[in-house]
Computed example of a mutant assay.
Amino acid sequence: MNYFSSDFKLGILGGGQLGKMLLNNTRKFDIYTSVLDASEEAPSKIACNEFHLGDLMDYQSVYNFGKHVDVLTIEIENVNVDALEALEKEGKKVFPSSKTLRAIQNKATQKLFYRDNNIPTANFMRFAYASEIKDAIENESLAFPFVWKSAQFGYDGNGVKIIRSINDLNDLPKGECIAEDMIPFKNELAVIVARNENGAIATYPVVEMEFHPEANQVEYVICPARINNEIATKATEVALKVSKAFNHVGLLAVELFLTQTDEILVNEVAPRPHNSGHHTIESSYTSQFEQHIRAILNLPLGNTNTKAAGVMVNLVGAENHTGNVHYQNIETIMKFEGVTPHIYGKKQTRPFRKMGHVTIVNKDINKAREIAEEVKNTIKVISN
């Protein structure tokens, strides 16, 4: 099939910043794109050939949209999977597949998938209702501390809470959830695996992630991870095992815990471009966004090696600021060596909302991390 400067149409479910960065690459290749999103102010709207307004969880909206594209992909997991399955039965190419998405959308189902496929992960218990957790504690089948996770619709730290006492159970959402052992880890790592329809596979170098303690969001992504080769190999092997089990097409970002005893445990996965791969735009020969396009269109996969060490800093809305966004001191950080800001195009800021990111590249990973700290302390995402 001819994808370039042709009648071929790629459909993307979701019009957020991930879609916008995907579209930078479809424009580079002159691939015609159509985007579906529920917001008139979606960041992707300015970069696609067609923009359609619709609810991603609504069966008819997703089905009707998918009927008019040649290949369908996602930039967010929360989409109507029944519609995708119906489209697949009619011969439409959907990547990741509805089967993969069904296993991943629900965290309880995802954890059961790891257990069934002998993939190392933290022990957990599944609950139909949050109220059942108290019974498990009283019966001593569950002990403090543990991590509560909503089974569905969690993102960017939402839907996750550390439970240290009975009082921490107050005000939890009532629906399906899991209680997961709290892992005493040394580090949080991630590996992005790319796979096309022909089965060609490529992995990006292992990265380490540093999280904001309050928002439970990634603050820094550091590539390559500051770990030894043995740990890096082990992490990559686990990620490849996960990829093989899902048999996905496209990207699969595998988030991992490195325990105090150097075990690698899978935390969760995302079947799309991921925050842990944003640095690849500047630091890698092939960005994760170009690689996703290559993979879902069954094109040759690109070189995943890094050109330089990279650190990514998330730009999130400052606390106590809600309203029209202002990027304070952005001109200052642009003077720093190897710094590239990415602004997502969201006009309204609020506390901890992802508004952009900054990549720092340097031959020396420690120098890159030092500059990243300076960036973090200089730029502020505030309201006017």
Rank of each mutant, 00 (worst) to 15 (best):
K376V: 00
H52G: 00
L301K: 11
A239E: 04
H342D: 02
E140F: 01
N2Q: 13
I333G: 08
I343Q: 13
R369Q: 08
Y285H: 14
I133S: 06
I379N: 08
E263L: 00
A309M: 05
V254H: 00
H274V: 06
A245S: 15
F153A: 01
D55A: 01
E237L: 03
N228F: 02
I360C: 13
K244S: 13
D55C: 03
N362I: 04
D82W: 00
V160K: 03
D30A: 09
L72A: 07
I379D: 06
L172V: 07
E214K: 15
A308F: 08
H292R: 09
A190E: 11
E208G: 07
V81S: 03
C223V: 10
G154P: 09
I264C: 09
N2A: 01
V249A: 00
E290I: 04
E319I: 14
K92M: 05
Y59V: 10
K376F: 10
V339Y: 05
V206R: 14
N24I: 07
L299N: 01
V221Y: 11
P300K: 09
Y344C: 12
E77Q: 03
F4T: 14
I360E: 13
I227L: 12
E210S: 13
L10H: 03
L169C: 06
T332V: 14
Y129I: 06
I371C: 02
E214P: 03
E268R: 04
T259V: 06
N247T: 09
G66A: 05
D181N: 15
M1P: 11
I281A: 03
N324I: 12
I293L: 14
N275S: 07
K380R: 15
V79S: 01
N216I: 13
N158D: 03
G19I: 05
N106D: 15
